[in-house]
Write a protein that binds this DNA or RNA. Structure first.
Lengths: 191, 191
DNA sequence: GTCTATAATTTGATAGAC
DNA sequence: GTCTATCAAATTATAGAC
């Protein structure tokens, strides 16, 4: 039994993992192919083998992140029916990354650099917010708070909640005080 | 009367102005000295004359932005005494840049890249949020809503409002729908 | 204060051997 | 699939003339 060489999928996954970590820390313009390569233990030409251009890599990282995030949220049909529980659920999901290693939401970082991104990458970041807002809007409309409420107000509230969560990550991290994010659990107005 | 050469202060101001615009569009890692130079109409060595390093330039841009923003907010003593008016006031201030040319809050952009920034730049971004939160906390404590409320709850609410505004800019801009930011005017919970 | 010239490094990307 | 070797361009920054 000789040692098996590293499989392709493993290298590709390692590249995606490291790229995600670096983007969440320093932004899309804050990492290089060589940095990825040395971290993964290959040469930069091998990174190009999997992802021909930097935009390709960035777009795939964003897509994978959005897919994973939405899958973790689950089917909106199964979301909590009490609005406060729903918001707690969403807050927890955003809190995961920050608590583990002080990282922002990947698509929040990309959104901040939006105008300077390759179109394909910006498009993926945009798509993340579309999907997240869609999930929250449907979930919220099925809660005690949302039942019978005008669609426009539910949309408004969904956006406001997402905005607060993204901004909360931003502020908690730049202040190097992750506990601030817990303080900023969104609340639904009583009215 | 011969034509006067451009004065020093003018060049320096032009550099700061353009650097601010570029950072707000593409982030700190998304602009270069040469880009600044060609936009201002000088050579990159002249930019280094005013700002020896990129970190120097970044830090001064951030400081100037924070000073200007806080000055525009004015003395907290003079803030509206009705909480809703206060939040409208703050929302309007954040909306200015977005409405004019689709730009984020400078320190929001920097916060997103925080871990990859030179320490001096990150420090200035941090300071902006300290000052903004301080302003809001004092202002809010003097409103109808804030009178007699526990300090901890006022702090919590101040952070939540700032987070929503920053996140709102982020989302509205990446979606290329500035009008979304108007939808996301923060509300104070009745309780 | 602004320039020319250039150093030293890094970047994204490609060709071709194995 | 990974490597060596390399390219062309861009980056921050400095030295020194005017």
């Amino acid at each position: 039994m000789t040692e098996l060489p590293q499989s392709n999928a493993e290298t590709e996954t390692k590249i995606l993992d490291l790229a995600e970590r670096l983007i969440r820390q320093n932004g899309y313009n804050g990492f290089s192919f060589r940095e990825i390569a040395s971290g993964v233990g290959v040469k930069s030409s091998s990174v190009h083998y999997y992802f021909p251009t930097k935009a390709d890599l960035g777009a795939k990282v964003a897509r994978r992140y959005a897919d994973r995030f939405l899958e973790a949220l689950g089917d909106p049909e199964d979301s909590p029916t009490r609005a406060q529980d729903l918001l707690t659920r969403l807050h927890d999901e955003f809190a995961k990354a920050l608590g583990q290693d002080g990282q922002m939401c990947l698509c929040g970082v990309l959104a901040a650099e939006a105008t300077g991104l390759p179109a394909s990458v910006a498009e993926e970041a945009k798509g993340f917010f579309d999907r997240a807002e869609n999930w929250l809007r449907i979930s919220l409309s099925q809660t005690d708070w949302g039942e019978g409420r005008p669609a426009k107000e539910i949309e408004r509230q969904s956006l406001a909640v997402l905005a607060q969560l993204e901004g909360g990550l931003l502020i908690a991290r730049v202040q190097e005080r992750p506990e601030l994010f817990d303080l900023m659990k969104p609340q639904i107005p009583e009215t």
